[in-house]
Amino acid sequence: MQLARKLAAKLVTGLVMIWVVATATFFLVLEMPGNPALAQEAADMQHGMSPAQAASATAVMFGFVPKQPLPDQYRHYLWQLLHFNLGVSIAEEGVPVSHIVASAAPWTVILASFGIIFSFLIGVTLGILTAIRRTTRLADGLTLLGAFINGVPVFVIAIMLVFVFATILAIFPQGGTVSVLETPGWNAGYLGSLVVHAVLPVACYTLAGLGAWQLTSKSSVITVLGDDFILAAELRGLRPLTLARYVARNAMLPLFTILAISFGLMFSGAVFIEEVFNYPGLGELLIASITTKDFPVLDGAFLLIIVAVILANILADLAYPLIDPRIRRS
């Protein structure tokens, strides 16, 4: 009963937060300088069209640009939102935003979830290793490596991976999600192509997050190792496995918070990674919709991110008592 009340309170708070942030986003996005038609015309010209061609290509798009007064647009937006209708795209001439966002989201989820899991597992493993062996040269070297990787901007990692593995060695595709030669379906060729195309972006995501996990987990484990209850446990002669469980449960708490938020934030897409690898996820969608001033798509993408982060926070709050008895007792 108490849990249900707590859940209901959190959901109500979450809904209010969604409304506040969606409203702020709606007005901020519309206040962005420029307009979709001019942006499209400029983009067409940069792709080689003559000014006249670009103007005629753009003319028809005006039919999909909302023209009502701002308050009316806002009321319409909220009303449609209540009916789970995110509107239609401007740049993609009438295509529903929900379709565009839903098409992009799975690619980001695949990329980000594997990236988060791999970077978490490898980073935390290395962090624990460096914490336990903190007086050795190996630990020093790994810590230095972790700090270095953590400091390299993600787009540099992405470009280096493309340059080495796609351009020079040509053992992985440069971008995209799957070879169009493969027949879609549950067959080895198609699934293999999906994996091969995901290797470099996932590796990039993993490398980008690995250093932070390693350094954070090292710090967390070292802190726990210095606690009196660990010393007491050692003196009591507990088995190493039991000791490791003690350390893990306590060191896990700060990491769990970061992990939960990471999963929530993954819907914001790995903007640079998706851009460099031409991976059509939410990050690339955000960039494209900012470039084309596609306000409805921007609103839709932001809304998804907001909802995901709020949900992740709610789930994390609800999960804390399960992994930390102190919170449960309080």
Partner: peptide
Amino acid sequence: ATAVTVVAACSSSPS
């Protein structure tokens, strides 16, 4: 697993 999928992907047949 990665090696298997790489081999599978590289052995795709043309249309």
